[in-house]
Design a protein around this nucleic acid. Structure first.
Lengths: 167, 167
DNA sequence: ATTGCTGCAAACGATTTGCATGAGG
DNA sequence: CCTCATGCAAATCGTTTGCAGCAAT
């Protein structure tokens, strides 16, 4: 299980939270939707994470702060965040939808260890160029792409070597 | 709905089928598993397709040939094909697992229209290079990657334009 | 007041498994 | 014969929805 880290650099986080809250409110107002204390709480906790959370994982974190908030509310909040660009779906292709927040985050991709589930982020500007060039070539108006690398992380490679030499 | 095309270039297909059948038999034998008429039939029909089939779609094709073959058998056959390298999972991120066969197919990626679901295949050797370079950089032994581009195909762009100018 | 939000529970849909029966080695 | 494969039905599991009551505008 990859660990979920909480980011507590007070100053930068604070600013980020305010930006995000403002963005969310504007988005809601524009669609005639309403604010709620639950959404604010979920957003705050979501932004304080790094990494890639399933609805269930975020719900667990949220419950630690307010046990009355239900799974469905977290589920719908994440959809909302994704709609207004605060969150992006991350595709690890393990049957679970994960989200990461997109505030002050450079465009990046993920490499996932298929043994322990850990992941690292990497930057690869070429990939953006490929998206545009292929889109143009086939007459597609491209909106996004999905790129992941799968393999075995260094730690798991060592464990596997130990296991095989022991047997 | 993307259409499933049947490839009936008799000569090349025939050869391909024999290679694949041999590969499958060797794989089964190596694990102490057994051949069956159902698996042969499913493999034959699977190889005659192009594109990306869900279990259900392949089951539908298989039933046209032999209505007694059940969904579960097709499901398990596809897993088997994937294990022995005859098939690869294709990830379109729509909640359905799709497979494509991997005989005589260059490494390729997919660009998917998010409006009509159609897709085109493209080749991008740079992506392989990125996989290796990033893997090396972070100490991962990489095994594969997943790369898709999403957007709107030419036909759907036209339809959208017509719709918006009509309103 | 009206309309959206919440939280529960139930529905959903694809995938996966248990089991009795049938077939391959 | 023994083991695996099959096909049905049921279980699973994350996601999604319906609804009654609550809260925001």
């Amino acid at each position: 299980m990859p660990e979920v880290r909480i980011d507590d650099h007070a100053d930068a986080s604070q600013e980020r939270l305010e930006d995000a809250t403002r963005l969310l409110r504007e988005y809601l107002a524009g669609l005639g939707l309403k604010q709620s204390a639950q959404r604010d709480a979920i957003l705050r906790i979501f932004l304080a994470t790094r990494g890639h959370l399933s609805t269930e994982e975020l719900h667990r974190l949220v419950k630690e702060h307010d046990a009355t908030i239900g799974y469905t509310t977290v589920y719908r909040a994440l959809k909302l965040f994704a709609e207004c660009g605060l969150a992006a779906e991350v595709e690890f292709h393990d049957g679970v939808i994960r989200y990461e927040h997109r505030l002050n985050r450079r465009n990046h991709h993920h490499m996932v260890c298929t043994v322990c589930g850990d992941s690292v982020e990497f930057f690869s500007p070429e990939v953006e160029a490929i998206e545009h060039s292929i889109g143009e070539q086939f007459g597609y108006a491209t909106t996004r792409h999905s790129f992941q690398i799968y393999g075995t992380c260094h730690a798991c490679q060592i464990k596997q070597k130990e296991k095989s030499s022991a047997s």
